[in-house]
């Protein structure tokens, strides 16, 4: 333990490590720079990521590459309709010992790992989806009255397929709220697609070099996560994050500043059914801290908060039918809220 504290990383160490992991991932993943950065930001901010993208955009490959680069244990769960919670968390099975005695033994599920990929999580039933809640929030799993701790670092990445919505179960808001960021993987442009073709159809596969040794990887990553928490946030920045979150709430959008300079955002009141929860503000600050470290700073700035605002808030905003009919998505709402709060000079 003392060795770990003695090797407390510096701001420069963080940025260097971050960029190196990024580089290793981009050996396989062509393009998606912002998605990769947000993915790693969520990892070092002790959060989980919901990845949304059409099939074939590299969601699963991205997660696998991340596991390889970090040299952490990696599991994948393909969510289907008939997937049961025990298939995720594990179950007690009767096993025969060496002495021939039979006893119930807990057989850990795929949730017991460092990096978990829940592929197409919206295809499982809500009961199965909620089996991940305890693991994601509290890093523990309770099976048959027995609680089992998960080893940190624990990082859940769930993918969503925005098409083929038949037979899917939209994630409940409570579960959506537990994902720190929602990352979108869009179609690659022509140049990126060309590079994907050439790198994946040849005889050679891209070799990924692990950034950490397997034995020290968890400690190193945990140290970097602790460093993120040490980044300082001025009260004004915390206030700014809080006002951004309140501005997404229809009932509070016009009283953001609680002063004469209140923000009145008609767009929020018209299209938003439910705004962001307080977890959104936490996500803003944590993501901003990672951004600050990457910029070589020990303090967060307004720009850092705004940079991560879409990833941190968009999936926490529930739109109404008016938004669906008018083609408004949550990203537009967040961008509008940022402009409104910034214009109000709060």
């Amino acid at each position: 333990m003392s060795d770990v504290q003695a090797e407390t990383p510096t701001v420069a160490d963080f940025a260097r490590t971050f960029r190196r992991i990024q580089a290793e991932i981009h050996k396989v993943i062509i393009g998606h720079e912002q998605a990769v950065e947000e993915l790693l930001s969520a990892l070092f901010a002790s959060g989980h990521v919901l990845i949304e993208g059409v099939p074939g955009t590299g969601k699963t490959t991205l997660v696998k590459t991340l596991g390889l680069a970090l040299n952490l244990s990696f599991n994948r769960i393909q969510f289907t309709v008939d997937l049961m919670p025990a298939d995720i968390t594990g179950t007690r099975v009767i096993l025969s010992g060496e002495d021939g005695r039979r006893e119930f033994t807990f057989q850990p599920g795929p949730v017991f790992c460092h990096i978990l990929l829940g592929d197409e999580i919206n295809r499982a039933t809500p009961k199965t989806q909620s089996a991940l809640l305890e693991a994601m929030a509290e890093l523990q799993v309770t099976v048959s009255g027995t609680t089992y701790r998960l080893k940190p670092p624990y990082f859940v990445m769930a993918t969503l397929n925005p098409i083929e919505m038949e037979g899917t179960y939209p994630l409940p808001e409570a579960q959506l709220d537990r994902f720190l960021f929602k990352v979108r993987l869009n179609y690659p442009d022509e140049g990126e697609l060309t590079r994907i073709i050439s790198s994946t159809t040849g005889p050679e596969e891209a070799g990924i070099e692990a950034v950490f040794h397997a034995t020290e990887a968890p400690e190193r990553i945990e140290a970097l996560k602790r460093l993120v928490r040490e980044v300082m946030a001025a009260p004004a920045m915390e206030t700014y994050a809080a006002r951004l979150v309140r501005a997404t709430q229809p009932q509070n959008s016009r009283f953001v500043a609680a002063e004469a300079r209140a923000v009145h955002d008609e767009m929020v009141n018209r299209y938003v059914a439910f705004g962001s929860s307080p977890r959104g503000a936490q996500a803003l600050i944590l993501g901003a801290k990672v951004r600050a470290l990457l910029d070589g700073r020990a303090n967060i700035a307004r720009e850092d908060i705004e940079r991560v605002a879409v990833a941190a808030l968009a999936h926490r905003i529930m739109l109404n039918y008016a938004a669906l009919s008018d083609g408004i998505d949550a990203t537009q709402i967040v961008e509008r809220v940022i402009k409104s709060v910034r214009a109000a000079k709060v």
Binding site: M232, A233, A234, P235, M237, N299, I300, R302, E303
Partner: peptide, 10 residues
Amino acid sequence: KGRLSTIVAL
């Protein structure tokens, strides 16, 4: 980028 604000505040 907020360095001075953070120092003065903290």
